[in-house]
C-alpha cells in the first residue's frame, strides 16, 4: 500500500473517530452548563427522540434478508416472531436472539422444500 493510501486510510479513521468523539464533548459541556444553571433543558427534546429512532432505523435496514425472495422474507418474519415471543416471556436480551437465529436457521434449511 502506498504512502498516499496509508494517509487516506488514516484520514478516514481520524475523521470517523472525530465524528464519534466531538458530539460527546459538545454534549458533556452542555450538560455541565445546564447543571450550573438550574432549570436549563440539559438535552434537546429532538435528540432524545432521535436516539430510539436511530435504533429503529438500523433495525429496518437489517431486516432485508440476504436472499430477498418470498421464502427469505417468510424466514425473516418467522424468525422475528420467535424473537418477539421469547422476549415477551423472558424480557431478556440473549435468549430471544438465540431463539430467533435458530428459528431463522431452521426456516433457511427448509426453504428449498418450501420454494
Amino acid at each position: 500500500m502506498s504512502v498516499e493510501l496509508w494517509i487516506a486510510l488514516l484520514a478516514g479513521a481520524l475523521g470517523t473517530y472525530l465524528i464519534r468523539l466531538l458530539p460527546l464533548l459538545w454534549m458533556q459541556r452542555r450538560l455541565r452548563h445546564s447543571r450550573e444553571r438550574a432549570g436549563t433543558e440539559s438535552m434537546p427534546a429532538w435528540l432524545g427522540v432521535l436516539g430510539p429512532m436511530m435504533i429503529a432505523a438500523v433495525l429496518g435496514v437489517s431486516l432485508v434478508p440476504r436472499v430477498p425472495d418470498a421464502t427469505g422474507w417468510i424466514a425473516t418474519l418467522v424468525g422475528l416472531a420467535a424473537t418477539l415471543l421469547t422476549w415477551r416471556r423472558t424480557r431478556s436480551l440473549g435468549l430471544p436472539v438465540i431463539v430467533g437465529v435458530a428459528t431463522f436457521g431452521v426456516m433457511t434449511l427448509v426453504r428449498p422444500m418450501l420454494g
Binding site: 430510539p52 435504533i55 425473516t76 436472539v97 431463522f104 436457521g105
Partner: peptide, 22 residues
Amino acid sequence: PLLGEVMPFALPALFLVLVVPR
C-alpha cells in the same frame, strides 16, 4: 455457505429486542 446466511440474523433479532421496549 449457510452459516454466512443465517448468523447475520442475530442483528435484526437484537435490534428488535432493543426497540420493542420503546
